[in-house]
Design a protein around this nucleic acid. Structure first.
Length: 710
DNA sequence: ATAGGGTTAG
């Protein structure tokens, strides 16, 4: 009989309906805080047919029945809508004599208990000797001759299980096959594959699997899950799926271990619909998922930033009576952070504590990240206090996460205390990440001396300075006009083999823009020359009086397209600042125009019928001044032409979250004053400047036509 | 690492 009788559960059709499953009973206290809004969730109906035409099945919608299989593709929005419109009540299609085919074996594969082996000590010692025999095949084979007991099935298994790395396991396995002492059973392949998996040797694993097939040795659930997880760890997701499908084709039913492994494969592929379809299909087969499954689902929803999904995981656990374990809590905390729900994460954490679990390093790291991202400094610091008073476990990753949180929130003293704690600790000494965080804190706080102390300390201790640390140092040394020190730091890291990235180039460029001494400027440009020669060419071009706009435009486009997206706007801001500081105002306007043209300043102008707004929050001081001049010029012309104007005008500078970005509002205010522009600080809203239509009109009428844009 | 699945940093 053809084994294809069991279909893969991968052909899915989607119907969308509103999730109003009233039977869900939420025991979790967390749920009491969740608004009980109706969640629209995509629920999946799965085709279990292998024939070219879909059979009638109990959950098919009418539209599915009418559609040839080739058109029923996955995740098609239009189709989902059609299904919503056309779907019939499920009961119409229920055929009680044809229950839905099962996709999962409810019985986990049994493992054969190993009997006591009296020679266990000898054999284990021998295995260690093999492991230590050096890394040549010859040495290994020579040591193999000293085997203390004949390689019976049990003895061989014991040794095989103790060998590492994978090269040794493989040599021993191949040797066993030449001995012909006993037939090679599945378990020998499984043990060998596990070792190969540690070495991420997917190809070798696949070769072994094919050898099993050739030799008619059964691949069991342990074999398949090992193959699948190895492919997954090697990021070869296609292979993982291929072996999962092959499993069904050979008539082998996955058990819950294999099933959750493949769920994770689809989750890592971000194929949420597929994961849900498999999940629900498994549920329909009578499967009760365990905590591991929910960790997989929780992580997936977290990566997608899907809070509804996270809530669904909690609902399912609640209704199935599955208690979350520590890993599930850790995963969900992380997920809630990614979904931007710090309050929910905090509640979940408290729930976890109430349930009697003790948080580990990962739990606390996840929560600190959540609080840092949400800028909840107080919660983060309270958590830190609690960690100390409860003696919760701490490691260097947690310390570094705390330091990064302090850097994000500008908590300098707290960071210093943490850093001292790390220095005193046995196991969590400051590493490159810790120093980078401190450089970030001192750098953005303008504490040059302290930053340089860190730099010297790193050099003494041999802690590597990475590109981000270098960027922080360049930034603050540049602001302090300590160009020689800056050059020293830059040369140091380049000599160490650190490749400057675009952010670092952006910082160098901003130092160039701040230089008022030609000698200094040349020193910085010499650094930039090593990192990005093309950018230096462009800087020189901008400085040349005779350079045409066309040339500027072409070269700007070329430089910007070679720049990573996150560094493009900073580059443009710096270039504008540089032009302004050298009195090349027209060129600054050209650059702002080009930056806008290439989409570097989306949302700079916002217009509604009642209000026009200039949002300069992502601009540098010079760029914001340029934008204001440009705007005033435009408004002036509009008034002259008596075109329609809104009642209100506003300019947003923001107040700045970092100490150093607070200058924007002030410089904007003084520049507005210089232009005699009628904007004044809003009293209700900090970092917002406002003017009325009347203000604007009387301003324009009192101006001479040429005075505005000059 | 004693035959298989899930969690930690710009």
């Amino acid at each position: 009989m053809a084994n294809a009788a069991i279909s893969t559960p991968l052909d899915v059709h989607l119907t969308k309906h509103s999730d109003q499953n009233k039977s869900l009973f939420f025991t979790s206290p967390l749920f009491r805080q969740i608004p009980t809004t109706t969640r629209t969730r995509t629920t999946l109906t799965i085709s279990c047919c292998t024939s070219p035409k879909p059979r009638n099945k109990k959950t098919s919608s009418l539209s599915e029945q009418l559609k040839p299989l080739t058109t029923t593709t996955l995740s098609n929005d239009q189709e989902q809508q059609n299904n919503t419109l056309l779907s019939k009540p499920k009961s119409t299609w229920v055929n009680p004599t044809r229950p839905k085919r099962s996709v999962i074996s409810l019985q986990r594969q049994k493992r054969s208990p190993h009997s006591y082996n009296p020679q266990v000590r000898d054999l284990r010692r021998f295995a260690q000797k093999l492991n230590n025999s050096g890394d040549s095949e010859e040495a290994f084979m020579a040591t193999l001759k000293e085997i203390p007991h004949p390689p019976s099935r049990e003895n061989a298994l014991l040794i095989l299980n103790s060998l590492k790395p994978w090269q040794n396991t493989r040599l021993f396995f191949n040797w066993l096959k030449t001995q012909n002492s006993f037939p090679m059973e599945t378990i020998f392949y499984n043990v060998t594959m596990k070792s190969l998996r540690f070495g991420r040797q997917f190809q070798l694993i696949e070769e072994l699997a094919n050898e099993m097939i050739r030799n008619d040795i059964e691949l069991d659930n342990i074999t398949y899950s090992t193959i699948i997880t190895c492919a997954k760890r090697c990021k070869d997701f296609d292979k993982a799926v291929e072996w999962f499908e092959r499993m069904y084709k050979t008539g082998m039913m996955p058990d819950e271990v294999t099933y959750s492994a493949i769920l994770d494969v689809y989750a890592q592929l971000r194929k949420v619909e597929e994961v849900l379809s498999l999940y629900e299909r498994g549920r329909a087969s009578g499967w009760k998922p365990d905590a591991i499954t929910f960790a997989v689902l929780g992580k997936m929803f977290g990566e997608a930033g899907d809070f509804d999904g996270i809530r669904y995981v909690l609902q399912e656990m609640g209704s199935l009576g599955v208690e979350p374990n520590l890993i599930v809590y850790n995963t969900l905390l992380e997920a809630m952070g990614k979904a931007g729900k710090p309050g929910m994460a905090r509640s979940l954490f408290e729930e976890m504590i109430e349930s009697g679990l003790t948080p580990n390093e990962k739990t606390l790291t996840a929560l600190v990240k959540v609080y840092g991202k949400a800028r909840w400094g107080r919660d983060a610091l309270e958590l830190w206090e609690r960690m100390r008073s409860n003696s919760w476990p701490v490691d260097f990753i947690l310390y570094n996460t705390l330091l990064n949180m302090c850097a994000d929130l500008g908590l300098e003293e707290e960071a210093e205390r943490l850093f001292e704690d790390m220095k005193r600790s046995e196991s969590s000494r400051p590493d490159s990440w810790s120093y980078t965080a401190m450089l970030n804190i001192y750098g953005s706080g303008g504490k040059v001396e302290k930053a340089m102390e860190m730099f010297d300390e790193m050099s003494e201790l041999g802690v590597e300075l990475n590109v981000m640390g270098c960027t922080c140092l360049v930034q603050c040394l540049g602001k302090a006009k300590r160009v020689d020190d800056m050059v020293r730091v830059f040369s140091f890291v380049v000599e160490k083999g650190v490749r400057p990235d675009d952010r670092l180039c952006g910082c160098l460029l901003s130092v160039v823009s701040m230089c008022d001494d030609v000698g200094d400027e040349e020193k910085v440009l010499a650094c930039l020359q090593q990192a990005n020669p093309k950018l230096v060419v462009f800087v020189r071009l901008l400085q040349g009086e005779e350079t045409s706009f066309k040339t500027v435009k072409d070269e700007f486009r070329s430089v910007i397209s070679d720049t990573s997206i996150e560094a493009r706007r900073p580059f443009c801001n710096c270039l504008i600042d540089m032009c302004r500081n050298r009195g090349h105002h027209e060129r600054a306007h050209e650059l702002l125009y080009l930056g806008t043209l290439y989409g570097l300043y989306p949302g700079l102008h916002n217009k509604t019928a009642k209000e026009w707004c200039l949002d300069v929050r992502s601009l540098s001081i010079g760029a914001a001044q340029t934008a204001l001049e440009e705007w005033m010029g435009t408004l002036y012309r509009i008034v002259q032409r008596k075109e329609e104007l809104p009642e209100l005008f506003s300019a947003q500078t923001g107040v700045g979250t970092h100490k150093f970005s607070q200058g924007l509002a002030n410089s904007f205010a003084s520049h507005a004053e210089k232009l005699a522009a009628p904007f004044r600080q809003s009293e209700e809203k900090a970092g917002c400047f406002v003017a009325t239509r009347e203000d604007l009109v009387s301003w324009a009428q009192s101006r001479a036509p040429t005075a505005v844009t000059a």
